[in-house]
């Protein structure tokens, strides 16, 4: 269970972009305040274009907030830093590298010897049950295995927090369920602090401890749901819980999904 130490804090964070016309401004997120405690699994859901991915870019230090502060492990985020691991819908594996050397990729900007890197990468692959494929190339793996390899690469840098940006949305429905379980097991067994950005409401309810709901652009946090369910390490078991439906219903109501037309 999560303890109380805060790993990530966003304090009144606003991000504005210059619109494509080069003159007017677009507000991606506005006055977002949230925190993630050590070992916690927080899901962020919202309609497409609500600035979920902006949060990821800000926390990973790839982009700067226009207003507000982002604090990671007690220090303000001012640029890319080694305590954040992130993963996208695309696996972003380098096709010319073997799986093990892809996992080593994140370690290469650090002062580690080649032997240390290899050792850590192999350990991570073992944890993600991919050690048999260490010397394969990405094209030889299935989509689900590639995402597991991407997770291994993300975890190899031993980040304080892992940001997952819709990591399962490119997979077929069944592979997705299997992979969600696999990720949940790995994350729970290591007590990894995680933020999952998703638009899949069921995924949010079955995988997280807490769900933050964002509004349409400009994105604000409009609801917070504490997921009071056992089996966080097994989303498939959670799916059978009647309460999951209640959470999904509440999310649908908050996002006004039934009033919308395509």
């Amino acid at each position: 269970m999560p303890n109380t130490a805060s790993v990530l804090d966003l304090i009144s964070v606003t991000k504005r972009f210059v619109a494509p016309d080069g003159v007017s401004q677009l507000t991606a997120i506005e006055q977002v305040t949230m925190n993630v405690r050590a070992g916690e699994f927080v899901a962020v859901v919202g309609p497409s274009g609500c600035g979920k991915s902006t949060i990821l870019n800000l926390v990973s230090g790839l982009d700067r907030a226009s207003e507000g502060r982002i604090v990671l492990n007690g220090a303000p985020v001012t640029g890319p830093n080694p305590s954040v691991g992130f993963m996208l819908q695309k696996d972003l594996l380098l096709p010319w590298r073997t799986i093990v050397s892809n996992v080593e990729f994140g370690l290469e900007a650090r002062g580690l010897s080649a032997a240390e890197r290899r050792e850590r990468a192999l350990r991570e692959l073992k944890r993600c049950r991919l050690d048999d494929f260490a010397n394969s190339y990405p094209y030889q793996l299935s989509g689900g295995m590639r995402q597991r390899a991407a997770l291994a690469r993300t975890l190899a840098i031993e980040p304080a927090i892992v940001l997952l940006d819709e990591p399962f949305s490119a997979l077929d429905a069944q592979t997705k369920m299997i992979l969600q379980k696999s990720f949940a097991q790995t994350i729970a067994s290591e007590g990894i602090t995680t933020v999952l950005i998703t638009h899949d409401l069921l995924e949010a309810a079955t995988m997280s401890d807490r769900i933050l709901v964002m509004s349409e652009r400009p994105g604000r946090i409009i609801d917070e749901i504490i997921v009071d369910l056992p089996d966080r390490d097994n989303p498939m078991a959670r799916m059978h819980q009647p309460k999951v439906k209640q959470y999904v219903d509440r999310l649908m109501a908050t996002l006004h999904l039934e009033e919308k037309v395509a």
């Binding site: 990973s60 230090g61 790839l62 890319p80 830093n81 080694p82 972003l92 990729f105 290469e108 840098i157």
Partner: peptide
């Protein structure tokens, strides 16, 4: 995204 990944890993 590939370049951003490398940037996030603090690559030069």
């Amino acid at each position: 995204d590939m370049i951003n990944l490398a940037r996030a890993y603090s690559m030069s």
